[in-house]
């Protein structure tokens, strides 16, 4: 292929990637170093609000933004360097807590609290998703041909449900005297409140995530199982390998690239855990990094948002994901080079 044809084929997708991936990233990156804010002035204002029968009028000193002659708010943008990152990370406070070995004080800082949960969530769900996915795939592979279609459809159902909706349904099953909580209470004969402390909520959230994504892992592994070399399996059988040995020494090595692939996708997805926090309204006990970014972005009732800190927090999330992916990427890179 000559370079012109190559450019004509690749050009559109490069353009799209620049437009939809690179530019937004650069814009967020830049915004994390700047702060845009209105210019306030303090004035005395008399405000009258209704009481039940008569009005109350008060004179208050209020800060209100200055308007220019077109009637729009005067905004100024300042370069603040790493200030927004400092405000998110609170390094001095974190360091003080670490050096005095005070876990409670360390976890009192939003970012580190969110990071603790995000990492726990990511690292606990990963082996469970892989294990459950592989189990389902093996079960599927051993199901009678006739039943396989319907069974695959049913296993895929959790994956089809919109995450927030799924989380909300689980929430309603367990919240207060939800059906399932009532059932457990009946079995154990004691009062149970799953939404009253952090650890039960965390288990619910992780359980939900595993339930939700295991079908994806299963379907990928099931596809991989179709290409296992049957000669190798047969010779293993003749050599007297047990079921477990065949799985351990023939099937799993064959699936390894897929396991790495699923792990990568899962790490990227679960590091951005968000739907669970919203769906289970867990923010009183547990927050995640992605939720923190969202919380900075949501305006309060008076309309203020923290765009700069949201940008900084988003960049930090991206850095976190990249760091998590390094070992897996290195492995893929090694395999790739070894393969040539």
């Amino acid at each position: 292929m000559n370079s012109r044809t190559f450019a004509a084929f690749v050009g559109p997708s490069v353009f799209m990637m620049l437009l939809f991936i690179a530019f937004p990233l650069i814009s967020v990156f830049t915004q994390s170093f700047y702060v845009t804010q209105p210019v306030y002035e303090t004035v005395e204002v008399e405000t009258c609000t209704p009481g039940f029968l008569s009005q109350t009028c008060e004179i208050q000193r209020k800060s209100i933004p200055k308007l220019d002659e077109d009637g729009s708010v005067i905004q100024e943008t300042r370069f603040v360097g790493l200030d927004s990152y400092r405000n998110v990370l609170e390094p001095e406070r974190a360091w003080k807590a670490i050096s005095s070995l005070d876990w409670g004080a360390f976890q009192a800082i939003d970012f580190w609290k969110a990071l603790r949960f995000t990492l726990t969530f990511t690292l606990f769900t990963l082996p469970l998703v892989l294990g459950l996915g592989l189990t389902i795939a093996l079960v599927l592979n051993n199901t009678a041909k006739m039943l396989r279609g319907p069974v695959i459809f049913v296993t895929l159902l959790p994956f089809i449900i919109t995450p927030v909706i799924g989380a909300l349904s689980i929430n309603w099953l367990f919240r207060g005297d939800g059906i399932l909580t009532a059932l457990i209470e009946n079995l154990l004969n004691r009062d149970i409140a799953l939404f009253a402390q952090a650890w039960t909520l965390e288990i619910l959230m992780m359980g939900y995530r595993v339930w939700h994504v295991a079908p994806f892992a299963a379907i990928v592994f099931y596809a991989g199982l179709q290409t296992v070399n049957s000669d190798a399996l047969e010779s293993a059988l003749i050599d007297g390998a047990s079921r477990w040995q065949r799985l351990r020494y023939v099937v799993i090595p064959h699936l390894m690239p897929l396991i790495v692939f699923v792990s990568m996708i899962h790490l990227m997805d679960s590091y951005r855990v968000f739907e669970e926090v919203v769906g289970f309204s867990s923010q009183g006990h547990v927050i995640s990094l992605q939720w923190l970014t969202y919380d900075f972005l949501v305006p309060d009732q008076a309309g203020n948002r923290s765009i700069s800190r949201a940008s900084a927090s988003a960049m930090l999330t991206m850095i976190g994901i990249s760091l998590l992916l390094v070992p897996l990427l290195r492995r893929t890179w090694r395999d790739h080079k070894g393969g040539h």
């Binding site: 209020k62 952090a198 923010q283 919380d295 309060d300 008076a302």
Partner: peptide
């Protein structure tokens, strides 16, 4: 009356995020 202002808007959000830590005993 609820003393609405830009400042209380911010403070209200921060109270909402920070209060749970006291109630849970953290």
């Amino acid at each position: 009356p609820y003393p609405a202002s830009t400042a209380l808007g911010i403070l209200h959000s921060e109270i909402g995020n920070g209060l749970a830590a006291y109630l849970t005993g953290a």
